[in-house]
Design a protein around this nucleic acid. Sequence first.
DNA 1: CATATATTTAAACAAATGATTAAATATATT
DNA 2: AATATATTTAATCATTTGTTTAAATATATG
Lengths: 208, 208
Amino acid sequence: MKVKKEIIDPSTEEKIKNAARKVFTQKGYAGTKTRDIAEEAGINLALLNYYFRSKEKLFDIIMLESFQEFMRSMISVFNDEKTSLEKKIESMVSNYIDLLIKQPDIPLFILSELRNNPNEIVKKMSLDNNLMKSFFMKQIQQAIKEEKISDISPVHFFMNMMSLTVFPFVASPMLKNLGDLQQKDFDKLMQERKKLIPKWIKATMKVK
Amino acid sequence: MKVKKEIIDPSTEEKIKNAARKVFTQKGYAGTKTRDIAEEAGINLALLNYYFRSKEKLFDIIMLESFQEFMRSMISVFNDEKTSLEKKIESMVSNYIDLLIKQPDIPLFILSELRNNPNEIVKKMSLDNNLMKSFFMKQIQQAIKEEKISDISPVHFFMNMMSLTVFPFVASPMLKNLGDLQQKDFDKLMQERKKLIPKWIKATMKVK
DNA sequence: CATATATTTAAACAAATGATTAAATATATT
DNA sequence: AATATATTTAATCATTTGTTTAAATATATG
């Protein structure tokens, strides 16, 4: 084992990461075999350990990246001091649905892995970006003060926004079955929700 | 291996099932080792196979029961022809939140296992209880016709109800971190939602 | 009580799985 | 070109893991 390579072949390393992202996301950490990743990447099994030392270290990298991607849309929007509360909700929902149509199984991957592991990554990310102290939360508190929206814990509104946006993707296998929907029908509903969810959120915010 | 026992000891069998339910729900199928279950149940490893033949068969039993429990609240409420649409929403949400406070990790268990397996159980259950043909859906369609609620696919309303109710539990590890909440705070919010969600749903139903 | 049947146990097996090794090949450096 | 370094490969290892076996113990039945 060399400590470090002076020159890396990005192609092989990337092939492994891409394969790992795909397989881990589909099957979870425990359900993924290193041989699955090697096969998916079209590389020799030993290369996985050569480039990433262990299954766990590779997983940590993939999880960190997935989590960052999942949070990125939110964070940039939340801390923008120029946009109104309404605009924030609109762009958050729209950004998320676009992301989720492209990568529908990121949330379930993150949430199901989080279940077991009080993951370091999440703790770190949460500290770095304390939601409760974001400009978004200040705007909600201000709107409550001005009696523009109802006096309910702002966390409810955040939960509602995430729930309405993310849950349909998390539950899509069940919802498709229960609702008798094809993928095409499902995607159409999700597109509709881009415009509907902001309206719904605003309506709920006025409920006493 | 005997084909069938004439007399079974319900105590041992139940111990295994209870342990299996706990471990499978926490760690998922792939993450669960038969030895984990045996240890949790306080029984000899071989008894698992003696009573249930294999890990997979035991899992199928647990999954079926969990799924049935998850659907039961919904189905009985949905097909009741005596209650109004409003009352249905209220009792559904309230039933679900009570269930989820007691068993918070059932939904994530079901959804994460469903991700891989286009499970037979779900297909069967869905056929038996076609949501789209339930009395609940007829009531929504009727309300749309009478212009009491907005003309949007009824599936949206169903999604919204499930999202607002179930998602906070599925995402609780993340929400607790992001929202800086203790378990106590979280439970309090969920109790508040029992009354809030029905109001929110009704508000969204009038959004054009 | 004697015998059959059911349950439990410790030990072992076979396959799967994460990781390593040493040799072979490719690539860079002088 | 010669040498050093990096990458790739096939084979192997050590553990883990689901399952089975055969013997021991408990329980029921006649």
